[in-house]
Design a protein around this nucleic acid. Sequence first.
RNA 1: GACUCCAUGGUCUAGAGGCCUAGGACACCACUCUUUCAAGGUGGUAACACGGGUUCGAAUCCCGUUGGAGUCACCA
Length: 503
Amino acid sequence: MTTDKGSTAGAGDRPVRVRYAPSPTGYLHIGGARTALFNWLFARRFGGSFVLRIEDTDVSRGKEGSVEGMTRGFKWLGLDWDEGPEKGGPYGPYFQSQRGHLYKEAALQLVESGTAYYCYCTVEELAERREAARREGRPPRYDGRCRHLSLEEQRRLEAEGRQPAIRLVVPDEGATAYEDIIRGPVSFENSTIDDLVLVRSDGMPTYNFACVVDDHNMAISHVIRADEHISNTPKQLRIYQALGWEPPRFAHVPMILAPDRSKMSKRHGATSVEEYRDLGFLPEAVVNYLAFLGWTPEGESEFLNVEQMFPQFALEDVNRGAAIYDLAKMQWVNAHYLRSMDVREITRRAVPFYIKEGLLAEAPDGEAFDWLVKVVAAMRERVKTLAELPPATSYFFADQFDYEEKAWQKYFAGDRRDQTVKVLTQARDLLASIDDFTIENTEAGYRKLVEDLGISGGDLFHPTRVALSGRTVGPGLFDVITLLGRRRCVERLDRAIRKAGAV
RNA sequence: GACUCCAUGGUCUAGAGGCCUAGGACACCACUCUUUCAAGGUGGUAACACGGGUUCGAAUCCCGUUGGAGUCACCA
């Protein structure tokens, strides 16, 4: 594949450097994960760098251990970052709270060049004016009243004890436009853009300002981020221009919406990748599903790993419309990985779920692990998540279980009771007599018994399953029989026969 | 409300003016395989939001309408 349309967006003249820049909320949002994934794929595609930067300029948002929650999500998904927390890198530090001098420097440059100015309006005054504008039906813009303050006026306001913020001068005329890699030309009238605050009165930079300063200083070549940032782009472009810096290329990927078409939130269910992990999803499946939300590679395959994805990843192929999160489809993808990946690996990953369910006290090893592998192998293609495995196979771990009411009634009570007891008694004797307890031998014995008794297979197979597992569904009967072993099969058959007789 | 983005079945999407009687996948339904349930196989229901242009020809291009979403802070 050499006719890559991605090259137009990728090659460029500078090395590809992209970044995912979350605020430290304590977890990796599923939508953020997809944005990060697209960044990651893009970086790999062009041999560039994927940078992780923490946007923690708003201390009130910071949470204890929030960065760890973030990085844990990335590690679980298998998305490694080239620079950022834990790793460092040539453009560090990677926390905005530690880059204060860079913002200060840039802000000063702007004030000196006259493209930014001190604004002494207080937050309260601003809020009041906004409210008034709203009442009168005017757009709630900043009126620019501090734009042309004389030195004396500034002194006077400072004497009142006012701490100034720094605002950018945004021209009233003209438009600010850019070429979005995914959407094409996007344009905003300058008259709709505020004289935005760059530096707050407490000295901390605002998001748009810090973002521009960092992207520039970190030599970011492409900003790939969610749709919701489109309206921030013209503001940032104004800042780039005021600073005399060349802006990066922008690509705005569509958002992922909840089934009710609104922004995904807690009330829609799981939103963080770790929740999906706890729900029993495999990271391979989550990544696969996420990548296909809004992007379609060449070919018909629905299953691709990241190594197969990145060589053909192109931002131009990303859809423009928002996508709705479809849990059913993700479960289907998960089920696919569950039954096609290495069984021992799947088993290893299932162990924590067995422990959590109380079926295992600790991670098994040796023969115990080998046996677990067989249990998982027998059941894995009948479930969609790791979390379903323990409850679906609990009877392999506990001898005391209840029989499904309907199934019991059907075979062990009423008309069929006597026949079931008779058949199972023979089955019990048969199993007890088999020395080499293999699938082949037990099945052969069962087939012969069916023939000898002149009954239908179901008359023997179904009640046996109920007696052994209490259920009507599960792995192949002879998988169940051999996994349980002769002793437990005989005991369970006896128990069911006894219970049927006691009625 | 203003601004911006978006618009193919319920969902994810293919589709770059004739290859489209609109293809694939999930979900759903039926059949099949079968000791159960899955998985697999086969088949089925189901979409170009609407209205104008442009063109010999439009899902594809343009305009409008409608609908949806996002943003409008000294939050990020």
